[in-house]
Amino acid sequence: MKRIAGAAVLAVALAGCSTTGQKIKRLDPGSRPDRVIAALGKPDAVQAIDGFEVYVYRARFRDRHSIRRTDYSVIFEHGRLVEFGPGRAKREGADDVVIVPSAP
């Protein structure tokens, strides 16, 4: 009986876990960095690119043959969230930073 109850609790706990990719979809443009950290946790890296601040989150997962990694970038301008998603932040033009998807 204890095993069944323990398994049920574990199943519910695991079902409540979300991956970085699932969590990042819930972010709202205009959010401040503290709200992003509350939603995603502490970033794995922080970069400054010409007036923009970029938080990098690395998500690792195992498939059948290897461990794969996806980087997610969250870009702030003037302390407000302006762009987020899978890929790496890269300067584009003189005044912009965009997220470039990683090659498969």
Rank of each mutant, 00 (worst) to 15 (best):
A8Q: 03
V9R: 06
L10N: 03
A11R: 01
A11T: 04
V12D: 06
A13L: 02
L14E: 05
A15D: 08
A15E: 01
G16Y: 03
C17E: 13
C17L: 11
C17Y: 06
S18M: 09
S18N: 02
T19G: 11
T20H: 03
T20E: 04
T20C: 05
G21H: 08
Q22F: 02
I24G: 03
I24L: 06
I24N: 06
K25P: 06
K25L: 11
K25C: 00
R26I: 00
R26A: 11
L27A: 02
L27H: 05
D28P: 00
D28N: 06
P29S: 07
S31F: 04
P33W: 06
P33C: 00
D34Y: 01
R35V: 02
R35H: 04
V36M: 06
V36G: 04
A39D: 03
L40W: 01
L40G: 04
L40F: 02
G41M: 01
G41V: 00
G41F: 06
G41Y: 05
K42F: 04
K42N: 07
P43W: 04
P43M: 02
P43I: 08
D44G: 14
D44Q: 10
D44L: 06
V46E: 12
V46C: 09
Q47S: 09
Q47C: 05
A48F: 02
I49D: 08
D50S: 15
D50I: 09
G51F: 07
G51A: 07
F52S: 08
F52P: 14
E53N: 14
E53H: 04
V54T: 09
V54A: 02
V54W: 07
V54F: 09
V56K: 11
Y57H: 08
Y57E: 08
Y57F: 14
R58V: 11
R58M: 12
R58N: 15
R58G: 09
R58P: 05
A59Y: 14
A59C: 09
A59F: 15
R60T: 15
R60H: 15
F61T: 09
R62F: 14
R62W: 13
D63H: 10
R64E: 14
R64M: 13
R64Y: 10
R64F: 12
H65E: 15
S66W: 12
S66F: 11
S66P: 02
I67L: 09
I67D: 07
R68L: 10
R68K: 15
R69D: 13
R69Y: 08
R69I: 10
R69L: 14
T70N: 12
T70F: 10
D71H: 15
D71G: 08
D71M: 12
Y72C: 13
Y72A: 14
V74D: 12
V74T: 09
V74W: 11
V74E: 13
I75L: 09
I75K: 11
I75A: 09
E77R: 15
E77I: 06
